[in-house]
Design a protein around this nucleic acid. Structure first.
Lengths: 110, 110
DNA sequence: TATAAATGAAACCAAACGGTTTCCAAAAAA
DNA sequence: TTTTTTGGAAACCGTTTGGTTTCATTTATA
């Protein structure tokens, strides 16, 4: 029962789970509503939802016979922060420097 | 031989690969130099490097008997952009709104 | 109350993953 | 010219992943 606290990077590595995140970011849906957006089976979607809840990106709330799934994407800040650590790598200024180093310096300087 | 053009989200899902990215973001290293930072075997590291090259985050350059691995992290922009799509979810203002909706509205409004 | 809807849970499966050890080839150094 | 260094490649292995089908249970609805 102990929440495994799964890694958020691993959770978002699957394209289906990223799609689910996109869906739930717009509105809360029950399991079948989520599954309706995919060709895979409902149990498969349920497993994806469970993985997303294990890392806190989704919370579920049972009401009657339905399980409502709600996005809680604060955990994506970790991903954003990590990627932004390397922001310099995709800035135009650095691209220019990179080109300069690659093309204009003699090989011996590597 | 055909470059599979692996998904960058999947590539960064492994913590060892994220560490390799961190290493190579500071300086170019050959394979053994990279492997020295880990307890896993050199072939295991080589496999991680290959995965990183398949999605363009690392480029390799053979010189003599050495394989130099260089970070090219422009591909992380895709990750940053995707995560930032949901930036609203971790902003303090929205947190306050969320608390308001969760606690101050009657359940019937769900 | 009988039926339909929504979901959890279990058993199963093939493929991918992350790792290993072993061996070989090429390049550099002694 | 031996010997060492560097790393590619192959074979193998246990676990995880992402999917399935089937069945049981609970809750609404006719």
């Amino acid at each position: 029962m102990n929440q495994v606290r799964r890694d958020v990077f691993q959770a978002i590595s699957d394209p289906t789970r990223r799609e689910i995140i996109g869906l739930l970011s717009r509105r809360t849906l029950n399991l079948n509503n989520v599954a309706d957006h995919f060709t895979i089976s409902r149990p498969a979607v349920a497993k994806h939802i469970r993985i997303l809840t294990e890392c806190g990106l989704v919370t579920v709330q049972t009401r009657g016979r339905e399980t409502f799934c709600q996005a809680d994407l604060k955990g994506l800040k970790e991903v954003s922060d990590w990627a932004n650590t390397y922001q310099q790598f995709w800035q135009d200024k650095l691209d220019a420097l990179e080109r300069f180093l690659d093309e204009d310096l003699p090989d011996e300087n590597l």
